[in-house]
Design a protein around this nucleic acid. Structure first.
Lengths: 194, 194
DNA sequence: ACGGCCATGTAATCAGTTACATGATTCA
DNA sequence: TGAATCATGTAACTGATTACATGGCCGT
């Protein structure tokens, strides 16, 4: 069966909380859900065009002095129906493609120190992400949205925080295990120059 | 900059531990790393063709009675070099696209019970995955591989286990929070027929 | 003057899945 | 005989990113 196009529904979902331009949508995706979703402008603009043709959205051109022209899209009744129908469908499981784990899996083709380097890079990135979460959580509370919308926003964010913590835990464990392995004299290969 | 083709390196990595056919590769991807990687035959066969042209692999046709002809690929010195060069590069961060979280984020367009249904579906799937991990972990020990290869195999697997646990924790928390919200009389909408 | 942001869009390319096409063997 | 597995490949299509193209405004 053909896969459904999620970009369309991500856009419709955003338009549910008010009309926006393509450019606005891109910013909202990044500011609100970059944690688990991303769309490029190269997808957003064509998708908006198709949604327009199908009458899932309507457009109004807004001119404001001192700014370029903007095409502001508003979801229609027909669009809302389509969006709710999609919401009802079970979510498709994600397909993982994790390059770091692939490299770790092939780790025996490297020196242990090289594997450690890779994991430490992930660890550094995850620590950065971790420090962002507190910031995001505070920001939700400053947004003008209903308690219900805040609840779901918080839940989506907390999912990211849990995964982030899990990755950090794994990094520590993996680093320990690799060091333990590398220090066993029996298992070291050539290069005994230490 | 152009993205690098990871399929090629996933294949080369598999060939590092012995020659295989395209069909074998597909099975190995599924049995060993489906946890964080997947390749379809529609990608494997063309990729093998290109790797052959570039002299990263060599081919031998194997005929065994009672079985169709197989093309068995072996990594060359040149291929090993290319593989190690790729291993050295830092891994690119994964692009998340999580349809379930997208639906949860848009949860205020549904009844809380519908959001709960989605999360419970994820929970059921993750519980299934959880029960698979013990099985996989036992299997690693039965495989004919060096302690080093087993270590990295175990680490790649344990990453999945940590993420799985994190998702299950999140599911429980999310279910609780949504139920708490839905039971607050103030925040319920129409449909007071209970 | 130049960089950065606002704003829209198209084209080229790559990545990836599914369907199509073929054909042998084995087992029920 | 018909389904399942082994085995290889191509074609069609969808998905997604990046580069290209255009142009105005604002601040330094």
């Amino acid at each position: 069966m053909p896969r459904i196009n999620r970009t369309r529904f991500a856009i419709l979902g955003m338009l549910m909380s008010g009309p926006r331009s393509g450019y606005d949508l891109k910013k909202d995706f990044e500011e609100q859900i970059s944690n688990f979703w991303s769309e490029s402008l190269g997808q957003i603009y064509p998708a908006l065009g198709r949604l327009k043709e199908e009458k899932f959205v309507s457009v109004k051109i807004k001119r404001e002095k001192g700014r370029p022209e903007r095409k502001v899209y508003r979801i229609t009744k027909k669009g809302e129906k389509a969006f709710r129908d999609w919401l009802d469908l079970p979510a498709e499981p994600i397909r993982w493609r994790n390059e770091l784990l692939l490299k770790v899996f092939f780790g025996s083709a490297m020196e242990p120190t090289d594997v450690l380097r890779h994991i430490e890079q992930l660890q550094a990135a995850e620590l950065k992400t971790q420090s962002l979460y507190q910031h995001y959580e505070n920001e939700i509370e400053t947004r003008d949205a209903s308690p219900e919308r805040r609840l779901y926003w918080r839940l989506a964010l907390s999912s990211g925080r849990h995964i982030n913590e899990a990755r950090l835990t794994w990094c520590s464990e993996a680093i320990n295990e690799i060091k333990k392995f590398a220090n066993k004299p029996k298992s070291r290969k050539k290069k005994s120059d230490d």
